[in-house]
């Protein structure tokens, strides 16, 4: 079961330059280093996409849809068909997601 706390969205601050932390990041709700983030661009080269922020420790999560950042590339291992508002599927794949987000941040901001 996931809980809603708008503070979990603060994880997004971690991808605004200057990048100071690598994923998993410190959860803005419970303080444990279990915070994750994932975007999924709906169509290749499209601007619309979904975003998920969640914490594996306190089970807070938030999902939104809107415009994906230009530097974002989808992780091939993540299937669009299995994405849902609640991040259960993403939680199962959190290790490779964190690695992917760190890689993209490094390639685009070169500061991790």
């Amino acid at each position: 079961m996931w809980y809603d706390d708008s503070k979990i969205g603060n994880i997004l601050d971690c991808i605004n330059p200057p990048i100071k932390e690598s994923f998993p990041v410190k959860c803005p709700v419970c303080g444990k280093k279990e915070g994750h983030l994932y975007f999924h661009r709906y169509e290749k080269n499209g601007i619309r996409g979904g975003i998920w922020t969640w914490c594996s420790a306190c089970k807070c999560s938030e999902h939104a849809s809107g415009w994906a950042p230009q530097w974002w590339d989808n992780l091939e291992a993540i299937s669009f068909e299995r994405l849902a508002s609640m991040p259960d599927y993403l939680e199962e794949n959190k290790d490779c997601i964190d690695e992917w987000v760190n890689k993209l941040l490094f390639l685009n901001f070169n500061k991790i």
Binding site: D4, S6, G9, N10, L12, D13, N16, I51, T53, S61, E62, H63, A64, S65, G66, W67, P69, Q70, S85
Partner: peptide, 18 residues
């Protein structure tokens, strides 16, 4: 809200169960 904090590139909608 989350939307205002990242409004430069992300400002559409948030959905949870409520």
């Amino acid at each position: 809200s989350l939307l205002d904090r990242v409004k430069d590139w992300w400002n559409e909608e948030i959905c949870d169960e409520d």
